Amino acid sequence: MTRRERRFQRQFKALERLFPPLRGPMSTLRRDSWFPIRFPIALALIVGGVFSFLPVLGIWMLPLGLLLLAVDLPVLRGPISVLIIRSRRSAKRWLRRWRAWRGRA
């Protein structure tokens, strides 16, 4: 397993710790036998994210679709890992700022 692959797997584990109810579905979707289902779902989520201006669809679909697509395409694993890391860091920073702001008020 390459360094990029290990980093990608670590980010999946971090997301599972962050969202415990999604642990089961995420581990199930990552299995190799789920490729025929995972790939069309990933493409549908990406297309839905592109059309986020429609009422039901949202921009949240785009990163989720890219995350699922990165399971099958090794080329995407590095950039998606970096995206997950940056997102987690910025979420922590915003949470700290919000707590500090809320503590002052």
Rank of each mutant, 00 (worst) to 15 (best):
V82D: 03
L43F: 11
Q11G: 02
L64M: 13
R77G: 06
L18T: 11
L67F: 15
A44E: 05
R89A: 10
L62A: 11
I46W: 04
S52R: 08
P21C: 05
R86M: 10
S90D: 06
R86C: 13
A42Q: 03
V56R: 00
P63G: 06
R23V: 08
M26H: 15
R30G: 08
G78L: 09
L15R: 07
L73M: 11
M26G: 08
I37D: 06
L83R: 00
R88F: 08
T28L: 14
P20G: 05
S33H: 06
R99S: 05
G24I: 02
R102H: 13
S52M: 10
F53A: 02
I59G: 05
A42G: 05
L15Q: 07
G65R: 03
Q11L: 12
V50M: 13
R96D: 07
E5Q: 11
L76Q: 05
F53V: 06
S81D: 02
R10P: 02
L15V: 04
V56N: 02
R31T: 06
L43R: 00
M26D: 01
L57W: 00
R10N: 07
G48V: 13
L83K: 00
L66M: 13
R4Y: 11
G58V: 06
L67K: 10
S87E: 00
R86G: 15
L22E: 00
V82G: 02
L76M: 03
W98G: 12
L57T: 15
G103I: 00
P36V: 12
F8P: 03
W94Y: 09
L68W: 06
E16Y: 04
W60E: 13
Q9C: 09
R3W: 00
E16H: 02
D72E: 08
R93T: 01
P55I: 12
W60I: 07
L76E: 04
I37H: 10
S87P: 03
P21L: 09
Q9W: 14
L73Q: 07
G65I: 07
I80C: 01
M26V: 15
V82F: 09
K92T: 12
M1H: 12
L18R: 13
L76Y: 04
R3M: 11
R93S: 05
W101V: 00
L22G: 05
I37W: 08
L83P: 00
E5N: 09
F51A: 09
S52Y: 15
R38W: 12
L64V: 14
M26P: 07
E5H: 09
F8C: 07
L29P: 03
F51S: 07
F51P: 08
V82Y: 07
F39C: 04
G103W: 07
F53S: 09
L57D: 10
R10C: 05
P36H: 07
I80K: 01
